[in-house]
Nucleic acid binder design. Structure first.
Lengths: 345, 345
DNA sequence: ATAGTTAACGGAATCGATTGCGTAAATTAA
DNA sequence: TTAATTTACGCAATCGATTCCGTTAACTAT
């Protein structure tokens, strides 16, 4: 296989009897080059198969036009939609997207953040790993003026762009919804305490109970490690076999919400009449399970688009931007069969 | 915000009284630098916060250590698992992953392939868009020695690495499975004819019917445009309202398979006894729907890992590699409630 | 007609690594 | 002890753009 030599602006310069500077300017629509020349050069570039070298351009101009994404794992509905939103808006602006998954491991997050840094990304979009507490590995980005947008799973002790939903209100509303359906003893499937999303959903749950005069029982709050299906099944079994089982569950994600429904059905517990369930995220499985799982909408793609836009805006302006801008998106309760009771008990 | 000047190998050279070449070699574990010096330099680099500049290194060495991925859309279970597999193996080898989604549009695929090319990726992994027929936009990669791995949705008229499953056998086995369950009139939900995956599944379906002496009816083969849930629902409705409805459906993906189950239930058609259904992919929804959807396993993550490995191997060897290597992975029929009949009719 | 602008382009340094070639010192072989 | 290697590094070109400063010619204003 013969490997062709690539066409550079020097080749174009020689061919057209212009200097490389003029070629470069023409290709970038610099105003000091006449329209005629620009047209001529662009046509020749096209014809000769010229393709810019981003490595060279990035090295010199110190702009890679690349957004780095640091997430836990890609193959989950929320995350893949998030990335889809990022990629679509980045692409429209001519930016590339570099991805890396930490698999929820702290050390991987550090390594990956370094790898992305080494590629001199224009900005970083991060959803923290489950384990991450220390933020030291993000400081070099700030020091070098590379904007970071934390999305969904954000830190509380680090000042930077953030794009989140109102997890507290969502948790409150989800719980309130169950209360309105007549639930008196509502359990909660909670995630890692140090991750804002789970902490706030739990706070919303607790406050909703309090404000509606319902008792808070420690035994009804299950702390999950990974919020997996199996973990959800076990927790549900344990709850339903209590002498005084709950009549409602607010699960911090849809996976465990669905597991609760399926487990309850297997145990002969009627959903929603004996046990009402609401999840979180609006994953595809939530509308497939029978009865379909009530849930909280999570604008994943939109959050991705906004995050990317923050980076693009930041790159566009040379002056010092306000790095502490926080975007809070609203959510909606999606009431489905798993919680809508015909006769309220 | 003060922006720090980045530390380069020149800074290290000055600080340690070595030449930049020695610094570079030491950092890359070049054998001609003594162990002592390597250790000294690496420690100083660490301490001074040195981070390599991939743009500079890539420009000079003509290796970006980056894999480009070109897929239709990320937020689908198969694709996100595929990318997850790619990313994990690429990362282990110190490679970055650039992603781009065509949204199944031909022109976007062209634009994205150019964008990836401009970043001088070390290799490209492609799952073709629904629309793509012409392969011209991939030629410049071949001409410049950049390996392409086509995965899942591959071209028939382009010679390059390919990683696929045996769609024909999978289609044959899925259909045979329905036949073994007693189905006599089996419908097929088929995808775009020019995409290998759908074409071959259909071929397998047709041959299975033929070899088992079942008639082939045009009306039972539904050609889908996007294989979406709504499309599946409509098709199922139409089929079930025929005077002589099918007693089995082999759907080319799980989404339409699930839609068939749900539609049948709504119309009062018993699954699997009156209508047995099998899908394709083993998406999460397939094990959630009731009855759970029989399907064909699709080793998405493994295919991603293998694809990435092809690129890594190709980059490692300087000699001309055999570009036409095709990897065919096996699949398994996952028999679940939607097709397993207690009493075979 | 002359000075002052503007338009259109060229020269050359620069970004931060990598690497072929050269060389002095240290080590080994004979 | 001397020649032959080997070890451990330095020099300087190079990758392919971008961009700060000119410079020339055409044009405009007075």
């Amino acid at each position: 296989m013969k490997i062709k030599k690539e066409v550079t602006i020097y080749d174009l310069a020689k061919e057209l009897n212009y200097s490389p500077s003029t070629i470069s300017r023409a290709l970038n629509n610099h105003k000091s080059i006449s329209k005629k020349t620009v047209k001529l050069i662009k046509e020749a570039a096209e014809e000769m198969g010229y393709r810019p070298n981003n490595l060279a351009a990035g090295l010199r101009s110190n702009k890679s036009n690349t957004i780095g994404v640091l997430i836990s794992r890609i193959n989950r509905p929320f995350v893949s939609s998030l990335i889809s939103g990022i990629e679509n808006t980045a692409r429209k602006a001519g930016y590339n997207v570099l991805i890396s998954q930490s698999n929820d491991k702290y050390q991987s997050e550090i390594n990956n953040s370094n790898a992305l840094y080494d590629s001199r990304i224009s900005g970083l979009i991060v959803s923290l790993s489950m384990e991450t507490i220390d933020m030291g590995h993000f400081e070099k980005f700030m020091e070098n003026g590379i904007p970071i947008v934390f999305v969904d799973r954000v830190p509380s002790n680090f000042n930077s762009y953030k794009v989140v939903i109102d997890n507290y209100t969502a948790g409150y509303s989800a719980t309130k919804h169950l209360i309105e359906q007549g639930c008196k003893r509502i359990a909660h499937f909670a995630g890692a305490k140090h991750r804002n999303v789970y902490l706030e959903r739990k706070k919303g749950y607790l406050d909703a109970l309090r404000e509606h005069g319902l008792p808070i029982e420690d035994k009804l709050v299950v702390n999950f490690k990974t919020l997996s299906f199996d973990e959800g099944t076990k927790a549900t079994e344990k709850l339903l076999k209590m002498t005084n089982p709950p009549d409602g569950i607010f699960a911090a994600n849809d996976t465990t919400g669905v597991s609760a429904i399926m487990c309850a059905k297997k145990l002969g517990v009627k959903v929603p009449d004996q046990l009402a369930v609401i999840g979180f995220n609006d994953d595809p499985i939530s509308s497939i399970v029978q009865p379909s799982l009530s849930t909280v909408s999570h604008p994943a793609s939109k959050m991705g688009a906004i995050s990317a836009k923050r980076i693009l805006e930041h790159s566009a302006q040379s002056y010092d931007a306000d790095l502490s801008e926080i975007t809070v998106l609203g959510t909606e309760i999606i009431a489905r069969g798993s919680s809508l009771r015909t006769v309220k008990s």
